[in-house]
Design a protein around this nucleic acid. Sequence first.
DNA 1: CGGGTTTGACCGGCGC
DNA 2: GCGCCGGTCAAACCCG
Length: 514
Amino acid sequence: MEKQHRRELTFLHSGDFLRENSGVPDRTLDDSSDHDIKEMDFFSTQYQSNDHQQSETNDNNNNGSSSLVGSCVNIGLNLLSSSPGVSRATTNEEKPNAEENTLKIELEKLNEENRRLRSMLDQITRNYNELQGQLFMALQKQANRNQGDQADQNLVFKHKDATIMSVQQFMDSRPSAVLDVNEPSGSNDKTRELSASPENTTEVVSKERDHRMIQSSPGKNVSIDDGSDQTSQSWGSFKSPKLDQSKNEDQASEVPFRKARVSVRARSEAPLISDGCQWRKYGQKMAKGNPCPRAYYRCTMAVGCPVRKQVQRCADDKSILITTYEGNHNHPLPPAATAMASTTSAAAAMLLSGSTKSKDGQPASSYFPSLPYASSMATLSASAPFPTITLDLTQGPNAVPFLRPPPSTASFPLPLHGYPHLLGNPMFAPPKLPPSPAMQLGQRPATMVETVTAAIASDPNFTAALVAAISTIMGAPPRNNDENNNSSNGVAAAPAITAPGSPQVQQSCSNKPG
DNA sequence: CGGGTTTGACCGGCGC
DNA sequence: GCGCCGGTCAAACCCG
């Protein structure tokens, strides 16, 4: 990027130089510009040095020391302005034309450069995705090996499929319909369809699949019929299902997916982060040790959707908003909701695959010990009796991404601002993407490379979460009271920060949970 | 009037 | 058994 910037500067210098040699016919100027571009493309370093020399020389001699500049350009100019008297003797009427032409040439150069950079970016993105997929497969093999002797085979498959889905959700720009936070889809078995969410066609099946996974797991069967039943089981107001829930927790080692939480830390002055879903606040409590109240939301996009989230400001830094997600949606998600869904899904899948063995409030495992910055320690605190993974999006542009001490929970500090190229990923850059402050933050080229490398080397889920989080940040307008705007702007991966007191639910939500 | 939020009450888990 | 605490409920209230 820096190089590009310098190149652009060089272009401008070149234009100045051309202006110095104004009075050149248009066609020949275009030709020279073409040469110029080629020179810029393949010998930029040399060109820069030449440019430097040129500027120095221009200080001494404004006539343009053409011989010092790239031979291609200078030769052409010299040849074309072989009659120096012509260019020098141009009238005042001709000079504006020449400048105009020069500007056109510059514009063309810049356009050409932009095209070239864009193609480079596409290439990088393709390579990135390719590498991501390969790494994902390798990690999955490793995970299967590591867990094979300990974990239930179903869990392995669950995680595998979950991560696959998570990655696929990103590989495909299509909106994903299922937030597999706790229950990543397990198999392709679609024999049992959910009756509770008729609007859904295929995605809901994953929930059902998981339910059968649970039932098929050794131990007690959990009476789960459909999504709404699961809702009542895990979240519903019925008391008897809560007993089932506790039973599930008793066998959490066998059914760990049901209780994973994904906590997203993000800096936001807004009271909550809009993730594209519709939430209804159903409670608020003052949590101990935190002066800021904790708000409880449940998803209202579909009847019986079990997904809930807690929103609370960090006690230490009140500018940090902590959003904790639980459950998985049993309904299709709007494009705007897929980002966070994929993020939480990937994070939960990663957490669960590596932390399902710890139940004692002890750091579950270093799932990725080679990651210095992403300590994936899943702790089971008293306040959070479930494995909780934290996606830390609070890394500022000036923060040192990898020096952050590992928090107590599984945490993935996401140096969002080091991924400007990802912002241009067609998967996550919808056409109507509004300009965002986050776009201005990605100006750390060196860190970007390191970060991307580390991210790729770490885990595809991490990268998936990262990308989704980036999209989340970048698509966040300062105020967004209109859910329609949020969901219809096509910002598939760009949930917005909502304004205070503005319920994200402005769309008519007739499906109010009982 | 429908849908949301607010807020006090209630419930269950957990530690002492 | 008791109290604390997190989570949830539901009536009251607010708003468009």
